[in-house]
Amino acid sequence: MSEPEKTMTREAAWELLKTYNKDPFHLQHALTVEGVMRWFARDLGYGAEEDFWGIVGLLHDIDFEQYPDEHCIKAPELLKAGGAGEALIHAVCSHGYELTVEIKPEHPMEKVLYAADELTGLIWAVAIIRPSKSVQDMEVKSVKKKYKAANFAAGCSRPVIEKGTAMLGWELDTLIEKTILAMRSCEASVNAFMAETASS
């Protein structure tokens, strides 16, 4: 991605996120999507941009907690105030494509965010009802079964997931499998961080 984006450190991004987000659920989701985006960067051959992919994931819902009715509309203002560059802003806002904004995902990273964001929520919902409470032993078929139940995790938009999958040129099973692997890669660190935060 473009050079200016490197000026925002991960630490600065985290502080910016916490300025507008206090709910543990939203912070956990942000950390999860950060970890997922980092995994996808490595998996898809963009390892040199892993930090940028991760920061986009971390900040993707920056405006959702305080401005749910202006999601991806208020974000540019908040991100600019925090020193974000145009590529980061475009990437964050593109996951609201045809929902709240007309900013189309263009870079593979933006397409991954668009497709995987909603899916991480659904996979997490599947995980918490499993005996293990974890994605470590989860299989694609477990997610597919719940995916087909429209009343399960109804807030996780199947049409968005499917549109994002099509943007990537993948099969749905491929996206689910990769997203499970991505969530496995960061589950322990996210859980440990949230536990530490809760006890401090």
Results as ranks from 00 to 15, higher is better:
22 K>E: 13
199 S>A: 11
48 A>S: 03
128 I>Q: 14
189 S>Y: 01
108 P>A: 10
91 A>R: 06
34 E>H: 04
73 I>F: 01
158 R>Y: 01
62 I>E: 04
88 L>S: 14
92 V>F: 12
16 L>C: 03
60 H>Q: 12
25 F>G: 06
83 G>Y: 13
72 C>K: 14
105 P>V: 14
149 A>M: 09
149 A>C: 03
30 A>G: 04
61 D>V: 05
125 A>F: 03
4 P>L: 03
142 S>W: 01
69 D>G: 06
45 G>A: 02
169 G>K: 01
123 I>H: 10
142 S>T: 09
58 L>W: 05
31 L>D: 03
20 Y>P: 00
132 S>C: 00
73 I>Q: 12
73 I>D: 04
30 A>S: 12
107 H>V: 06
17 L>D: 09
148 K>C: 04
17 L>V: 08
94 S>V: 12
134 S>V: 01
11 E>D: 15
108 P>L: 13
41 A>E: 13
187 E>C: 06
39 W>T: 12
89 I>W: 12
40 F>A: 09
188 A>G: 11
53 W>Y: 14
178 K>E: 06
129 I>R: 13
173 D>P: 00
135 V>P: 07
46 Y>I: 00
71 H>Q: 06
97 Y>I: 09
25 F>R: 15
25 F>T: 14
151 N>K: 09
93 C>A: 14
167 M>C: 05
82 G>S: 03
8 M>F: 08
102 E>I: 05
190 V>F: 09
38 R>N: 00
114 Y>C: 10
109 M>F: 07
136 Q>L: 06
76 P>R: 08
79 L>R: 11
115 A>H: 10
111 K>I: 10
83 G>K: 14
111 K>D: 13
30 A>I: 07
84 A>C: 14
158 R>L: 01
200 S>P: 07
135 V>K: 03
195 A>G: 11
13 A>M: 08
71 H>Y: 04
74 K>N: 02
44 L>T: 14
6 K>S: 15
80 K>Y: 13
